[in-house]
Every structure is written in structure tokens, then in C-alpha cells.
Design a protein around this nucleic acid. Structure first.
Lengths: 110, 110
DNA sequence: AAAGATTTATTCTATATTGTATAGGTAATG
DNA sequence: CATTACCTATACAATATAGAATAAATCTTT
């Protein structure tokens, strides 16, 4: 396993967003989820570029949905995290947790 | 606050290592601490390059120690995290925590 | 005590990967 | 055909990473 098997900072955030959103994850909702939960501004291009990279690593799969009957309701590209992707988040989080153990930073991080 | 106020993945790990090591933090121990706790192989060049970047952002300060009376005991460059650096880790961790809330990944991450 | 070998440590340099924004394109409906 | 929601392309900046080169000590040997 190479060092590069750890998720980058933004990749990490994106994967977590996908996991939370489950079957509702597509470009717009991913961006929203991140902005709402972290207050961080995210450009839509950054979201897609990052997801594309995750997909090319096999951490994410995508499929095209059906168009929806609303103005501009073109079909969405839905994303889901693969088992390999879940393994990568776990690996990344495990490393952080092990480095954090015993430090008193913010409470919610055990 | 710009997006870039979040620590990168490896920057994050490095800062945590510095915090753990307190006044014993210098190149070699930082590398060791990370390798031991995360089982991740780290090149020494990566450590210094990253710390330099953190220093230029004001997240870390360094000072030169005295030589020690052992073979090859040239003086070490010791590092410590600044208040600004602590704020940055907290910001970074807070974002991750908020994205992780409610997901069941690894247990130790609350 | 000086030269060279050895050890611990840091710096330099080069490259790959990740992060980020913007502009432009596509497929729906009104 | 105007508008809306969504996606793609592209370019550039920042971060990650390795490896070789350099530096500053001590040790060994003569």
C-alpha cells in the first residue's frame, strides 16, 4: 500500500459527503452538503474534478439517472462510494485517529 | 477565511505529530512518530518540505538546538506549533467531524 | 592532532498528485 | 428560443513525495 492510498483533504470531505447522501448524491447535492455542514464554500468544478479523480482510482462509481419533470431537469450523474473507497476512508481516518489519540484538541474528536 | 486555511492531509498528520512530540519534535522524531503510529512510510524529505510550508504559513516555528555529544550529533532544528497552527488543526478536524457525524465508519471516530 | 570514515541531521531539487476556479457546453421545460 | 439545472473541459496553484546532495558532529587511525 503506497502513501497515495490515503485520501487527500478534499477527497476525504467529498467521500464523506457521498456516504451521507447515499442514493441522493450528485454534483449539486454534494456541494450543498459540504457547504451546509462545514460552512466552507465549494466551487462546483472542484467537486466534479475531485470526484472524477476518485472514480478513476476506483473509489467511486457513477451512473446516469433519468431526467426529472422540472424545468432544467436533465438527468443527473449519481455517485456512490465503492468498497475500495470505504476502505480508503477508513484507512485515512484510522491514521488521523491514531495521531490524535491522547491530544486534547476539539472534544468531539476522540 | 479561504479554503486554503484547511490543512492538507499530510500537513494535518505532521501538525499532530508535532503536538504529540512537544519539545522533542525535530525531523527524525517527527518521521518516527508518524511511521510508528500510522505504519505509513514517510520520506524525510517530505517531512521537511511540509514543515517548511507550514512554517511559511505561520503554523509552525522552529529554532536550532545545541549539538549533542554523540557521534553525528549535529544540532537539531526543533519545531513547535503556533497558536495559529492549533487553530488550523481545529478548523480542519471540526470540518471532518461535522462531515462524519452519524456515519458508522471506524468506531473510534465519533 | 589531522585525515578520513561514519553518523545524524538538514537542504535542495525535481516531479507527481491534489485542490480550485472559471468558462463553456448539454439536456431538460416553459 | 429563453431559462434552468446540471455537467465537462481546462488551466493553474498548492500540496505531496522521493532521492541526492550537503553539513556538522564524533570516532579511528596514524
Amino acid at each position: 500500500m503506497s502513501s497515495r492510498d490515503y485520501l487527500g483533504e478534499f477527497e476525504h470531505i467529498i467521500v464523506l459527503a457521498l456516504l451521507r447522501l447515499e442514493d441522493r448524491a450528485y454534483g449539486v447535492t454534494v456541494r450543498q452538503e459540504i457547504e451546509i455542514r462545514t460552512k466552507r464554500e465549494v466551487s462546483i468544478g472542484a467537486v466534479y474534478a475531485t470526484i472524477d479523480r476518485l472514480e478513476s482510482k476506483g473509489y467511486v462509481k457513477s451512473h446516469l439517472g433519468d431526467p426529472t419533470p422540472e424545468r432544467g431537469g436533465r438527468s443527473k450523474r449519481f455517485f456512490r462510494v465503492t468498497a475500495k473507497g470505504v476502505a480508503a476512508v477508513n484507512r485515512t481516518q484510522r491514521a488521523l485517529v491514531s495521531m490524535t489519540q491522547g491530544l486534547d484538541l476539539i472534544r468531539s474528536y476522540s
